[in-house]
Design a protein around this nucleic acid. Sequence first.
DNA 1: GTCATATTGTTCATTGACGTAACAATCCGG
DNA 2: CCGGATTGTTACGTCAATGAACAATATGAC
Lengths: 165, 165
Amino acid sequence: MTTATSPEPKKAPAEPSDALLRQFIGYNMKRAYMQVQDDLAATLAPLGLRIGTYSALAVVVGSPGISQTQLSQVLDIKRSGVVVLVDELEGAGVLERAPVPGDRRAYSLRVTSAGKRLWQKAEAEVRAHEAALFADLAPEDLRQLHDLLARAARSAARHRQEETT
Amino acid sequence: MTTATSPEPKKAPAEPSDALLRQFIGYNMKRAYMQVQDDLAATLAPLGLRIGTYSALAVVVGSPGISQTQLSQVLDIKRSGVVVLVDELEGAGVLERAPVPGDRRAYSLRVTSAGKRLWQKAEAEVRAHEAALFADLAPEDLRQLHDLLARAARSAARHRQEETT
DNA sequence: GTCATATTGTTCATTGACGTAACAATCCGG
DNA sequence: CCGGATTGTTACGTCAATGAACAATATGAC
């Protein structure tokens, strides 16, 4: 007898739990991410941003002149999806659709000066909220988690793509 | 010079990226979890399960006799949501709504023998897929990631709850 | 040059997974 | 016994994202 719990949980469990799910890394990712997602949405709302528009803004800030198709690839959504995001950001005066010299079909997305300021505000805001959320973890643990998540994402992406190939 | 990229990304970026987002732990969680989610859905589909029903099945297996309200609390969804899940599982002969002796309103959820077998199959299947997904990480790293995610989820849950309180 | 084919952005309908609000049946405490 | 809570249920709304079409434009073969 290693663990001295009740030997036979035949009928009603005193404490229902998701113990069987917690063995999986994916489930723990979900649990953690759901918290981050909810907090992030609440953080961005006062800035007039949703998670989708916030992500799009970040990519355009970091990659000025990007096209909507490229943006859809980076965000891993369909082209029809970015239209909504860019419409919203453009309507807020945060982003603009500039014409591409060589191609009259595509747009060159750029942030306005107001957009740049909004991003800096959002970036600081999100960073602060994330720090507060994970305040129970030591800085070294956070760094480690960040690195492991990035590697896990790469590993999963690679192996999933190989399946399809 | 470590990386020899162009020093001034004024106009069109050669390689658009989500670099500005990857600084955040939450974004890396999302990237990793999305991969897991897609793979999980594909893994469960042949078994006739969706992520929602799979999660519900796991909880009922681990907590026999649980009520739908309790299940909604563990899964962190509304009671109206579990009705759909339990309906589906019951329709597949995986689960049954047994009457609760003392309370004629509630149901005592239990897995059938077929349900128990289905869960064992799903559990093994998911474990194998997860191992393949994260094959690039050393076992020790995986263990570490599992632990850090669990702690991060707890930390976030605690701090978010304190805000509301 | 011309024409088939691909690409870009867009619109619209649909889907899926939730939440909200109401409701009947049932339980509980005074 | 009765007002108020709890359980499961139903109908409806919401929100983000997809899929399928489409017009405008670009590209490449000939």
